[in-house]
Amino acid sequence: MLKEKKEMQNQTFALGKENYKLLLIGFAIIVIGFILMVGGKSDDPSVFNPEIFSFRRITLAPLIVLFGFLFEIYAIMKRSKTGN
Rank of each mutant, 00 (worst) to 15 (best):
M1Q: 14
M1T: 12
M1V: 12
L2W: 08
K5N: 10
K5R: 14
K6G: 03
K6C: 11
Q9R: 14
Q9A: 15
N10M: 13
Q11A: 11
F13W: 08
L15W: 15
L15H: 07
L15P: 08
K17T: 02
K21T: 05
L22F: 02
L22P: 00
L23D: 00
L23E: 01
L24T: 11
I25T: 01
F27P: 03
F27Y: 11
I29N: 00
I29F: 01
V31T: 06
I32P: 02
F34C: 00
F34L: 01
F34D: 00
I35Q: 12
I35S: 06
L36E: 05
L36Q: 03
V38Y: 00
V38S: 07
V38F: 02
G40Q: 07
K41D: 12
S42L: 09
D44I: 13
D44V: 12
P45N: 04
P45W: 07
S46A: 04
V47L: 13
F48H: 08
N49C: 06
E51G: 05
I52D: 12
I52A: 11
I52G: 15
S54G: 12
F55P: 06
R56S: 09
R57P: 14
I58D: 13
L60F: 09
A61N: 03
P62Q: 07
L63Q: 10
L63P: 11
I64D: 05
I64Q: 01
G68I: 03
E72M: 09
E72C: 10
I73Q: 08
Y74Q: 02
Y74V: 04
I76Q: 04
M77V: 09
M77I: 05
K78A: 10
S80M: 08
K81L: 10
T82E: 13
T82P: 04
N84L: 14
N84I: 08
